[in-house]
Design a protein around this nucleic acid. Sequence first.
RNA 1: GGAGAAGUGGCAGAGCUGGUUUAAUGCACUGGUCUUGAAAACCAGCGUACGUGAAAACGUACCGGGGGUUCGAAUCCCUCCUUCUCCGCCA
Length: 426
Amino acid sequence: MVEISVIRQDVERVKEGLKVRNWSDEQIQVIDQVLELDDKRKEYQVKIDGLKEESNKYSKEIGQLFKSGKQSEAAELKQKVSDIKEAVKTHEEESKIVMETLENLMFSVPNIPNPLVPKGHSETDNEVFKAWEEELPVLGDEAKPHWELAKDYNLFDMELGVKITGAGFPLYRGQGAKLQRALINFFLDRAETAGYEEVIPPHLVNEESARGTGQLPDKEGQMYYAEKDDLYLIPTAEVPVTNIFRNEILPDANFSHKLCGYTPCFRREAGSYGAHVRGLNRVHQFDKVEIVRVEHPDNSYAALEEMIEHVASLLKDLGLPYRILRLCGGDLGFTSAITYDFEVYSAAQKRWLEVSSVSNFETYQSNRLKLRYKDGKSKHLAHTLNGSALALARVVAALLENNQGSEGIEIPEVLRPYMGGKTHIA
RNA sequence: GGAGAAGUGGCAGAGCUGGUUUAAUGCACUGGUCUUGAAAACCAGCGUACGUGAAAACGUACCGGGGGUUCGAAUCCCUCCUUCUCCGCCA
């Protein structure tokens, strides 16, 4: 959530931010409504607190009167308190409506984009932040897409996934399964070297956690839900890992938390069709190593750069052509202040596949999480960031396609130690 | 899954026959006095959220969560959650 104090102090900046997200003037009026409702909320609190103060005082007096045996005077006061209580009840009911309305409005306000975020309406307006400078690989006519290669080398089986579960749940096998493990271990080892502490979090989360990172409300359709236990399957490790810090007050201003974790990710993903969902391009379950950071506001953008460098180095060492996009206002996630997407080039499909998304949420998540740090006597919200490092399914897709050859699929050098020293999947 | 016990401030721990408890006391922490410095001792401060206020300060709520009884609830009632002990089951 955007902090109400920020809206109060800097209405224009908030409104400008919503314009970058292509909000109409009419939609932006929400901000004025928020301020109005917040004023109302305060009025109610002043009124209710005052009445409660009065009745608390009387209640104490009643106690004293009973002790000294003045029953009739006590009865008189009792009536008075009852009357006050009635008034409090009425006001509380009204104020509850105000607060609920206010909260719902607050939930409908997305994060304010960083000034660097370009204007635009869709993914075609995203800014190429770092282009691929070299030639893009060109394969011969005999080149196959990864779903055909998977059959040739027995790497994964979509039909079996359908039999066991349904569409979009791949079953990896043989060298394909081993490649998954290799990539996960490679990514985790590299994160560890970069100073991230590894965690293995739960794969199901409660409602509070889903709210904390902003999956709820609104995006419940994207998550699988276990109704009997009221738990959500995680769409990304971001949710359980960031929620480690929910309701935490860090003891001083000198902190930097770097965590990484491997988890499967479950996404219901409505929409899209055809070749775009073929093979591993778009699946309901995929593996991902996520990096998460909690940083002082002064350091969060330096941290973001570090994360971008980290992800770039992974792709470089895997030998995959990649580019980095800076998402435009129209494509920017609801909770993010700025997001960089990484795409790898799939030579057989001749298109770019998104494999990572690195974002700074500034205080948007920490406001919901109530994640603060102490700076002397005052408390402030920390900044949260996260990024995929990396999402496996599409990396595998690109790897298989780009590295195919007469001897099989060449395994990138950095992965060979994890693949029993082999140079090729053959 | 069955039976029982318990959840109080950073920690430990009283209160739990409802009203001088404004949550005692100890430890930890912060500031001060003393000291060459430190320790000890002594004095003071020490939770979170929201609100009023220029500020000092004050008000309201919070004793696992939610609801209820009452003029008044940490204390009584209901419900949910968690932890512990015993039994059962199990990789």
